[in-house]
Design a protein around this nucleic acid. Structure first.
Lengths: 160, 160
DNA sequence: TCGATTTAATTCGTGTACGAAGTAATCGAG
DNA sequence: CTCGATTACTTCGTACACGAATTAAATCGA
């Protein structure tokens, strides 16, 4: 990792940092949640449902920043587990409304409290954190607006 | 996403930001690389191999920050594609040495150049970027050292 | 009103990711 | 030397994640 750090452009380093940190968080949450049937993506879903109330799959997709086709199987499992309910909307039979259950609420409460304590132990400076968050938000907006340049393979052979 | 942003602790927001930005980068790279058989993880592998030369799977695992069992199938596909070679080490038959091929090198050159240009168009401030990178590195170190608090389900029922 | 379009969700195929278990080669203590 | 660790890699099972294709419901327009 040090070698990568010392030979790479800042832009590429940003991607790399985000990439590795994301998986660090993932492992952290996975360990913390191992007994609960929860994962980080499911945690995000419960948070969104608690904050904004019952909503359709596509609303949830927008709020959680996850595609609807990723959500579908995940929601099915969460409903089987009992953390959420799923029901066709009467007004529009295309929509599926998702809501958190009391059990899901209770899991979320426990998870949030314990996770918050765990992260406080990390002693992260609030000012630097909020600066970072601002920067990351701007970066994401820019990346999502940008249309990616295409890398081609014209004239590439096994030899060159 | 705004609702999540305005109702959540900074710690949780950091995870969420990293989580969403990582996928934004992933989609950006996927679009850029669509013609090349490359993905972001494979790009990282090629970078590591170029910078540090041929190495074993476990060395690569450390440098790229990916578990060896994730690497294994990935390397197999990259070798079939022709971007790398894989060979048992003569000195130690347990080890598999991986090296970038000229073709892999050429793909990497093209990808790196074009990606760098694409990111320059994003107009990211270098100072803020390097501050952010420093912060993210510290955060990752802390998260990886921390032992995650366990969230339990004691006494949880369908009702509560 | 009724077919064409649009929208909402799901299914499908592919590609990471990781812990755990398995296999084979090497090492190390007795 | 030799047999029980240890190490290196792979396989397996599970869980996201996304684009593309699909299905079904609602809506729009002639």
């Amino acid at each position: 990792m040090d070698k990568i750090a010392s030979h790479t452009s800042l832009h590429q380093l940003l991607c790399f940092n985000i990439y590795t940190l994301n998986r660090s968080f993932g492992r952290y949450y996975q360990a913390a949640f191992s007994e609960t049937g929860l994962t980080y993506p499911k945690f995000v879903i419960l948070m969104a449902l608690e904050m904004a109330g019952p909503m359709s799959v596509s609303d949830l997709s927008n709020r959680a920043g996850v595609e609807a086709n990723t959500l579908s199987p995940l929601l099915k499992k969460m409903a089987e587990f009992g953390a959420i309910t799923r029901a066709r909307a009467e007004t529009d039979e295309r929509r599926v409304d998702v809501a958190i259950t009391p059990m899901g609420q209770e899991i979320l409460n426990r998870a949030r409290t314990i996770i918050a304590k765990g992260f406080e132990a990390l002693q992260i400076d609030p000012k630097r954190l909020s600066d970072t968050l601002e920067f990351l938000n701007e970066a994401r907006d820019k990346v999502e607006k940008a249309d990616p340049p295409k890398v081609g393979l014209d004239g590439l052979t096994e030899q060159s």
